[in-house]
Structure formats: structure tokens, C-alpha cells
Design a protein around this nucleic acid. Structure first.
Lengths: 219, 219
DNA sequence: GGCAATCTTGACCGAATGGTCAAGTCATAC
DNA sequence: GTATGACTTGACCATTCGGTCAAGATTGCC
């Protein structure tokens, strides 16, 4: 073994323990932040949820703010992946249906992350401000261009593109952020697989018909 | 003056001072809770915002929880008024367009209240749980019945009514809860009157066309 | 086995927070 | 004018919270 290999191996081993602990803590923190908000969450609650002593959290994350920032940044990667799923090479119906499907799946699989994200934006985006001003702005500019071309080509009805995206974001994220209310209206039970299918179907149908393309038949 | 009049007058005077102070505090609390969340808001911050000594807050509201509860209950009345604005005696296009308009105006005029409401639901509705289980459930049952009749009468396309309402709630409330993000994407400026008009127009258009009714011409 | 680096953890600390209180001010009724 | 009740407020208290630390356990490498 060369020095490089040894260093790499040692690093790898350490990284494994470290990564496992960090992930355990981040998972716990994401849930507690989602349930209580940043101010309402205590390091002790996060430690209890992670089944680790509180001092151990501070060994991996220097401060509560640093921990929160990493939670948000981890969610950001999921958001970016979903944003990429809007395939502009497809026709409007296919592209939008697939994008809505992806966003609904994100809400379904990352309800805590979605809540943290919503709270982050509601409170003025202290962590993701730069992302909003750079990546998201550019993403929106690019997609507005595409949607306008769809309009010019007569593929969809005239609409201000950003308001269409707000509808899609709001509706899909609602299923995570307001899950509690949805569950109450669902007789107190979480949405079943069939419920999710039906919700996706109806959301896609309203949006596609709403922008003037015939939704694909899903009898 | 009779005893009743005297008592009423005295009561009235007191109530006036009391109501003014309570309103001042509730307004400040709503904003601070919206900006920082319940856990992140301190009584001192609310006191500063209301330009009153902290001890004065505790004279009118015994605890932080009690103050928060009254903030939420005040928002609830606004929510109930908006819910009433869905006029089921009208045809679907008129009823839905008017309801969306009302909900958009609520988001525009009560952005802080909307954020507090969203956080309340996200965190499991500690205060409004009973409202969700009674009033809202009944409201939804009644409206589902109406929407189903619209469907049976061939006035709108088949859809699970609650998913339609989720779309309307999510989209309209998004303009308050995610106003920060919207402003960033609007070159950092708050939406103008024209922006609000355009947003309303596009939301109404997508929903109405989405459920299969021709949106009224708004050239 | 022994060394070095990483990891673990109970005990502790200063600051901030929700809440209390008693002394005082102010308005009103007679 | 003076007694009564409502309102105001600076000082204070107990608790909680984020964060520190030093002593010890564990791991990996020679």
C-alpha cells in the first residue's frame, strides 16, 4: 500500500463512521425541524430522536445553525433533481405530466424535507437566498422561454409561465406541507397508494386541460 | 343613567382601551410569529414590535401560548369568511372564479396571517385541530356534494372534488406563504397591482379550463 | 502491545426566555 | 378630592437552551 492508499483507506473508514453519524443526525434534525420549526426545535430533542447524546451532535455539527444549514442543503439537492426532471425536449403534455409526477413523488417521499423547505422560504430564505437569486432565477428564465415558445407555437394557451409554475409547485408541495389537514379530511388516515394515484391523475388533468392540451387518457 | 347604563359605559370605556391594546399586540404578534415561527418568536420581540413593555403583554395575554392561540383564532375568522364566499347557488364558472378571487385577496391582504396558518397546519394544528375535524370536515362534505352534482349535470369534467379544492387552496395561499420566493423571481420587487391581476386571471383561467368550463373572456 | 487519531459523553456554564410581582400611574364615579 | 379599579412597568426569578470541555473509550496501524 502506498501512502496515498493508506491515507485514502483511513480516510474512507473514518468517513464511513462520520457519514453514518452525520446521516443519522441529519435525518433526526430534518424531522424535528419539520415538526417544530427551527426556533422550536432543541438540540436535545434532535439528540433524543437520533438516540445520541447531545454533546455528540456538537462533535459533528458545530452549531444548531450549521446543522440546520446542512439539513436545508441536503433538501436542496432533491429539489434540484426534481427541477431537472422538466424535460423541455418533450411536448408540453408529456413534459408537464412527468414534471408534476416527479414533484408529487418528492412530496410523498420527503414530507419532512418539504416542510423544512417551506418554513425556510416563509421565514425569508436565510440559507437559500443565494440559490433563489442565482440557480432558481436562471432556471425560471430558461423555462419561461420554453413555455413562451409552446405558446407561440400554439401548443398551449397563452399564460404567464411563472404563474403556471407557481400552481404546480404550490399544488404538489401542498400534499406534503399540509398533509396533516389532508389526513384529517381523509377521515384521519394518510393517503393510500390509490389516493396518491388519483390525486396525481386529477392534478395532471386539471393542469394539462387548464393550459389547453388534451390530457392523455388514463381510464 | 341607570346602573346598567353606567356599568355598560364603564365596561365600554375599559373595553375600548383593552381592545386597542389587544389589537396592537395581536397585530405585532401575528407578524413576529409569521417571520420567526412560534418557537423562534420571543415575547420581547413582540413587545418591541408593538412598542410596549413586555410586562404589558402579559397583562393582556397570560402566556405566549394564549397569545398565539388568539392570533390563530383571529385568522380563523378570516378563513371562515373566505370559505363562505364559495357561492354554490351559482354556476361552476362564476362560483369558482369568485372563490379564487376571494382567496387571492386574502393572501394579498393577510400575508402574515396566512404564514401563521400554514405553520400551524404544518406543525400538526395544535390549536385548530378541532376546527379541522368539525367545521372544515362539514364544509368539505357539503362542497363535495355540490361539485359532484356539477359533474353529474355535465357542467364540469369528472374530478375528485377535494383534490380540486386542494389545488385552489395551495395555489392561492402560495402567493402569501411563498411571497419571498415570488418576489425574488420578480426581480426582488413585490407584485404590483397589475401582477396580482394577471396572476388571478391565469389561476382562474387554468382552474376553469382545467375542470372543463370555458373561462369568461377577460381581454 | 503501543501509539495516535477519532469518537463518545456526563458535567458544566453563561445567556436568553417566559413569566411574576409590587409599586406606581391614570381614569372615573360620587 | 378622594376612593376604586384598571392599566403600566422596571426589576427580578427559575428554567431552558446552545454550546464547551476534559476525561475516557474505541479504532486502525506499525
Amino acid at each position: 500500500m502506498s501512502d496515498k492508499d493508506t491515507a485514502a483507506a483511513a480516510n474512507g473508514k473514518k468517513t464511513e463512521i462520520r457519514l453514518a453519524a452525520e446521516r443519522r443526525i441529519l435525518d433526526a434534525a430534518e424531522k424535528v425541524f419539520a415538526e417544530r420549526g427551527f426556533g422550536g426545535a432543541s438540540m436535545q430533542q434532535i439528540a433524543d430522536r437520533a438516540e445520541l447524546p447531545k454533546a455528540n451532535l456538537h462533535y459533528y455539527f458545530s452549531t444548531k445553525e450549521a446543522l440546520y444549514r446542512q439539513v436545508v442543503e441536503r433538501i436542496l439537492t432533491i429539489w434540484l433533481d426534481a427541477a431537472d426532471s422538466l424535460d423541455v425536449t418533450e411536448d408540453p403534455a408529456t413534459a408537464l405530466a412527468s414534471y408534476i409526477d416527479t414533484k408529487m413523488e418528492v412530496s410523498r417521499k420527503h414530507p419532512a424535507g418539504s416542510k423544512v423547505w417551506a418554513a425556510e422560504v416563509m421565514h425569508g430564505a436565510p440559507v437559500i437566498q443565494v440559490y433563489l437569486e442565482t440557480t432558481l432565477r436562471e432556471w425560471m428564465a430558461g423555462r419561461e422561454y420554453i413555455v413562451r415558445r409552446w405558446i407561440d407555437d400554439g401548443l398551449i394557451v397563452p399564460i404567464e409561465p411563472r404563474y403556471l409554475f407557481y400552481m404546480i409547485w404550490a399544488t404538489t408541495q401542498h400534499y406534503a406541507d399540509f398533509a396533516h389537514q389532508i389526513n384529517v379530511l381523509n377521515d384521519g388516515a394518510p393517503m393510500s397508494d390509490d389516493d396518491w394515484l388519483a390525486a396525481k391523475r386529477d392534478v395532471v388533468a386539471v393542469i394539462l386541460r387548464g393550459v389547453g392540451v388534451i390530457p392523455p387518457r388514463v381510464e
